[in-house]
Amino acid sequence: MDLFSSDKNLLPFDGTVNYFGYVLPKPEADHFYQRLMETIEWKNDQAMMFGKLIETKRKVAWYGSEPFQYTYSKITKQALPWTAELKSLKEICEKHTGETYNSCLLNLYHDGSEGMAWHSDGEKDLKKNGSIASMSFGAVRKFAFKHKETGEKVDVILEHGSLLEMAGTCQTHWLHRLPPTTKVTQPRINLTFRTIEK
């Protein structure tokens, strides 16, 4: 872990959320944003709800060091091989967090009308209490945390070229979401680097 991670922890208790702020200068962030738009195999996300297959406007992609399978919302995805850009971004995350990652779930939100409801990343394939490194590109968006028992909330603004890490017991005790907003008209790309344990 980063020696100064305790100074960055946004959570008051029961877990760790480190916000590193900008980890890429704007020209580099702009470059990666464009390359991710062009090279990632984006597909509309799917979920099973009440026995029906629902397709979201939000697009997703799943990449990894091996063809890992990853199941959430009762839909299984198989990882595609790393692109050059994703490898570079993974190394940047690993340098800042001191962790290692073998997979990445990407989200493309076309504008502020698209978000993510309250949830925690507790899928059985994920390393328990492992680190999830979240990189943001494009539109600046608010990201929110809510404690599962107390209801206490913590918000953070995720900027273009920034890095946030969720670690420890964060997923056990806290929910997180990307609230929709009418104020944002530009796309946002989010990369969440994870560790799958087979």
Rank of each mutant, 00 (worst) to 15 (best):
M116K: 09
L175A: 05
K95D: 13
L158Y: 12
L106S: 12
H176D: 03
T71E: 03
P67Q: 02
F145R: 03
N129F: 11
Y101L: 05
K198D: 14
S65K: 04
T39I: 11
A84K: 13
Y33A: 12
E165D: 12
E66M: 11
F193I: 09
F143D: 00
M135W: 01
R194E: 09
L105F: 09
K148N: 10
D111L: 07
L163I: 08
A167Q: 07
K198V: 10
P179G: 03
L53I: 13
R194S: 10
S73W: 01
G151L: 08
R35S: 14
T182E: 07
S131I: 07
E197G: 00
H147G: 04
K146W: 05
I157H: 00
N102C: 08
F32T: 08
L89K: 04
L106D: 09
E197W: 00
F145P: 03
S73A: 11
L108N: 06
L175K: 10
L158H: 01
E152I: 09
M1K: 09
A139N: 01
G21W: 02
I189V: 14
R58K: 14
K26C: 09
G168T: 03
K127R: 14
A133D: 06
E197Q: 13
G122H: 00
F4E: 04
G112D: 10
F193K: 07
Y22M: 08
Q171G: 06
W62I: 05
K153C: 13
S73R: 13
Y19D: 15
H31W: 06
V23E: 01
V184D: 03
D14C: 12
E159F: 05
K57L: 13
G151C: 04
W174L: 05
E123M: 01
S103P: 02
T71A: 00
G112I: 12
A61W: 09
F193H: 04
M1I: 09
H31G: 02
L126P: 03
R58Q: 08
G115P: 00
G112H: 03
T39K: 15
H31Q: 14
K127W: 02
F50G: 08
L10M: 11
V17N: 05
K146E: 12
F137I: 06
H110W: 00
Q46G: 07
